[in-house]
Design a protein around this nucleic acid. Structure first.
Lengths: 350, 350
DNA sequence: CTGAAAGCGCTAACAA
DNA sequence: TTGTTAGCGCTTTCAG
């Protein structure tokens, strides 16, 4: 492997001249610059990143740690993060925590060893020991993405998840639905917790009593959502609407509905969260609450880069900052107005 | 930032003892080990990766460069690659080339500077200047993934793409289709070129003359596929079957078919390539040729790790190796037997 | 403008 | 078993 020394020798200049040219640290005469570039070309020289990192005490990579990169939501996030980071001269290390706090912590430790310049994290844990472990790595700029950790003081960029669920529930209520089922993920994840609350709040505001049998807990995957919804639909008095609290669970739900022979939206209305490439090939077109994913990613990267740049100067002077973005209800074809039973004609609470 | 020196001082041992303990290079007495671990804990020490890399001349990250991480095919690939790499103690740097050779080359240069231990690449270029630029970075172990570069001598792990298209075409032919349209991506990408040939070969073997108006060139995205298929279907004498040569184009095609009011598979049969999370929510269920994505990723990672380990020892002695995996036809509901025009008596229904 | 040299944190060879 | 030290490739004073 050729080094800066070799280049200097071949170009017949000193090491520091090559370095100056490469870093724009000082002006180098055109003639020498010429010779140096030629030498770099002929030797196939490439600056040694780790050596540079060691010397400079910083690195040009940032990390993105998500729960499941195959979840289209995270994929979109990753794509934008990568694009913005590369624009800013950083490479992106992507890591999967599989939603397992322990694996996540291990990854973070590896990332810390690599001295990544900063970390974007969708935290998978929540309990005190997790929080404490997280705190250990705060010597590296960290921004939480998509999920916050309410008890702690990290910068975060999130969407108002409570509003998301409230909007969806509210919409279904306005379509006259009263028995609205929820398919939700495990609640220790902030987004899921918020969505559960948003759903309940939506019902409460409509004066509808919560029915625990309509709150189905899946685990954020298609398969489990399929199972719980299938089971629900075999019960007597099935709901007239289902709200699935993430995209994968939405997919499981709609499959179950179709497989059980229910027509959507005529018999069961379905509302969900987020879009994904290909969702437009599903009929009926899904009514969803969508998050501004690109903006989420952009804000997070921007905030992280800010922290990276400010960190050395003013040590954690600034208060942790939370940026909350608003979702949008995208009305399409998977929800329809519930026809109230013949006789009474009224639609007052039940 | 605390260093190994600090740890040594706090634990009151020498630097090399700490290093020996950390690397398992030599046995350290239990008592000292105890003290050292305590010191590491109390100082929050984390080994300095770049320094280590500099010293050892190697790094613990590998790179995965794909054309578009939001393409579910690449996402699946990335997921498995990440998992296997982490198992082997490597982090994965994911980068998007956006299918632009120039951007890709720039990324590869950055990766080379970082001295990643190896690179997994789905090459986006093909012309001589690209190949030449690629050759410049071959001091880093490189394995091509999903696509090969026939003119060059790189290790590659691919699926038999020609067979993929032949299988799909053949299947449609067996269902009695004669006018089979193809939606294909730009041909300078190996996979697309192979699929085009496979399609043509499938027709040829069936004694069907190729019809250039049925070969629709999109650019691997949903939107363009939608457009070209929509245009096709407004023509007189539309095809009775469409084969879309990747998953995104398949999605665009099925949307166009539905939006134009054609029923699938009754009026138009559709065959595609690959699955994705959520494809099972699309009706009809898509008949596709699926690639063994996990195996593809696993083989590629394995080969890359081999190269990483062998490289220093026996320099490129071994011939470039190409691993070709076989696809599988997954028959579901989007293709049906074509009913031959009235008079002749028709074929057997299925 | 250019050259010599220190030192970033770490590992490993060698000495004790 | 433990301690001392050279040097990985680079940037950056500091002198010429």
């Amino acid at each position: 492997m050729t080094t800066i020394k070799d280049v200097a020798r071949v170009a017949d200049v000193s090491i520091s001249t090559v370095s100056a040219l490469l870093n724009g640290t000082a002006r180098v005469s055109d003639k020498l610059a010429q010779r140096i570039w030629a030498a770099i070309e002929s030797t196939g020289y490439s600056p040694h990143g780790p050596a540079r990192s060691l010397r400079l005490g910083r690195t040009r990579s940032i990390a993105l740690v998500v729960g499941d990169i195959s979840n289209p939501f995270f994929t979109s996030l990753a794509k934008t993060v990568e694009a913005r980071a590369v624009e800013a001269g950083y490479m992106v290390i992507v890591a999967n925590s599989d939603e397992e706090p322990e694996k996540e912590l291990k990854l973070l430790e590896m990332l810390r060893e690599q001295r990544v310049a900063g970390i974007l994290l969708t935290p998978s844990g929540h309990d005190p020991s997790y929080l404490q472990a997280l705190a250990r790595i705060t010597d590296i700029p960290l921004v939480l993405l998509d999920r916050m950790l309410p008890q702690s003081a990290f910068d975060s960029v999130v969407v108002d998840n409570l509003a998301m669920a409230r909007m969806a529930t509210d919409y279904l209520v306005r379509l006259n639905h009263r028995r609205i089922a929820l398919v939700i993920g495990k609640q220790h994840i902030w987004t899921m917790e918020q969505r559960l609350h948003g759903y309940r709040e939506g019902l409460r505001l409509a004066g509808i009593a919560a029915d625990p049998t309509l709150e189905l807990v899946a685990d954020t995957r298609i398969e489990t959502a399929y199972e719980v919804v299938q089971r629900l639909l075999t019960q007597p008095n099935p709901p007239t609407a289902i709200f699935a609290a993430n995209i994968l669970m939405m997919l499981g739900a709609i499959e179950a509905v179709m497989d059980m022979g229910f027509r959507c939206p005529e018999q069961v209305s379905l509302a969900g969260i987020d879009d994904f490439p290909g969702s437009s090939a599903i009929r009926p077109l899904l009514t969803t609450v969508t998050q501004p994913i690109e903006e989420l990613a952009e804000r997070a990267v921007r905030r992280l880069l800010e922290k990276i740049d400010e960190d050395p100067a003013s040590p954690r002077k600034t208060n942790p900052q939370t940026i909350t973005l608003m979702p949008r209800l995208l009305i399409r074809d998977s929800c329809s107005r519930r026809i109230v039973p013949p006789q009474s004609g009224g639609s007052i609470s039940r």
